[in-house]
Measured scan of single mutants.
Amino acid sequence: MGFKLLSKLLVYLTASIMAIASPLAFSVDSSGEYPTVSEIPVGEVRLYQIADGVWSHIATQSFDGAVYPSNGLIVRDGDELLLIDTAWGAKNTAALLAEIEKQIGLPVTRAVSTHFHDDRVGGVDVLRAAGVATYASPSTRRLAEVEGNEIPTHSLEGLSSSGDAVRFGPVELFYPGAAHSTDNLIVYVPSASVLYGGCAIYELSRTSAGNVADADLAEWPTSIERIQQHYPEAQFVIPGHGLPGGLDLLKHTTNVVKAHTNRSVVE
């Protein structure tokens, strides 16, 4: 069995187990497998329904001669939608809004960016022009300005110390501490036991640490421990890039980060 097929099978099995364990909360999309990078042309966006009122959005972007996937989250909030992270750029984010209108038909009224990198804030200006209120932590807003990236308009308070959590509509926002970046936030959907790890969490097929220019490698494993301790009931975990899975993604990420750190020390 090929690795790609095995990865998709694991996603399907995880979703099936969740649907059985929580039949009222989960209505997993039966329309197909989780979209992969090879299936999404740059400039297009796919939506994948995880649970009743919960979707991931998947886009792709060219970077350094390669094409990478990027995940975000959409959560229903009454007759409105909360968006977590842009679709990595203005063109993708405009396509995301169009796809949401086509498939869901509810307005996106608020959006949260989970850290300051372009795959999370690139497209904020498109959201703002569409009347979406954009939010991020003060740290993310400051770092985005320093980096020359787009800056969300509103500040999220109460997320300055490791372990801080605040309720934001249908989700809980959690600051686990520094990891992929010093400002990275985690998003949890309690009604569906869905954990969105953003770039602080890796997919299972990833074996290298990737972009760690703004990471705190020493603190990252401790931050992941905080996530595990705060959300032990999480059933569906979405990484910032690639295929979702279960809580095993947290341990896998820790292993990859520690291996990278150990290699760096040896070198």
Rank of each mutant, 00 (worst) to 15 (best):
V194R: 01
K258S: 13
S30M: 14
V189E: 06
I100L: 12
L247N: 10
T134G: 02
S205P: 14
Y12V: 09
E172Q: 12
L143S: 12
R110P: 04
N184W: 01
W220E: 01
S208F: 12
N184A: 01
L97V: 05
G2C: 05
G198T: 04
H115P: 01
A98H: 14
G177L: 01
L83D: 02
P35C: 11
A213E: 12
G53L: 13
L106K: 09
G78V: 11
P244D: 03
A178C: 04
E101D: 13
R46Y: 15
E157Q: 12
N184C: 01
E233Q: 13
E99I: 11
Q235R: 08
A51T: 08
S155I: 15
R141A: 12
P244A: 07
L83K: 01
V67T: 09
H252V: 04
R226S: 13
L249R: 00
A51E: 11
H115T: 00
A21E: 10
I224Y: 00
D125S: 10
A213I: 08
H115E: 00
A209P: 12
T93G: 00
T261F: 15
A179R: 02
V11K: 05
D77Y: 12
Y135D: 01
R120S: 14
D183E: 05
A144I: 14
T93W: 00
A165P: 06
A234Q: 03
G158K: 13
P69A: 13
L204W: 13
L24M: 15
T207C: 05
T254C: 13
A111H: 14
P170R: 09
A192R: 10
A90R: 14
T114D: 00
D216P: 05
I100E: 02
A178Q: 12
D216C: 05
S113F: 09
S113Y: 04
Y135G: 00
R76A: 13
Q61E: 08
W220A: 03
G43Y: 07
I74Y: 03
R128T: 09
G163D: 12
S30R: 08
G78H: 05
V54G: 02
H180W: 01
F174Q: 02
D64E: 07
Y68K: 11
T254I: 07
P170W: 04
A129W: 11
M1I: 04
A130E: 09
F26K: 11
I58W: 10
S16A: 06
D119I: 01
N149S: 08
M18V: 07
N255R: 10
H117S: 00
A51I: 15
D85H: 03
H241K: 00
H57F: 04
W55E: 00
E225F: 11
S38L: 08
A21I: 06
Y196T: 01
L250V: 13
N211W: 13
D64L: 13
S161M: 14
V237S: 01
N255T: 09
G131D: 09
V187C: 02
L143V: 04
V45N: 06
L173V: 13
G246H: 06
F236L: 11
S208C: 06
N149Q: 11
I104A: 02
V189P: 00
L82R: 02
S7M: 15
I104C: 00
A165L: 14
S27W: 07
T140R: 02
L83F: 03
G53M: 07
V126M: 06
A98F: 08
S62E: 13
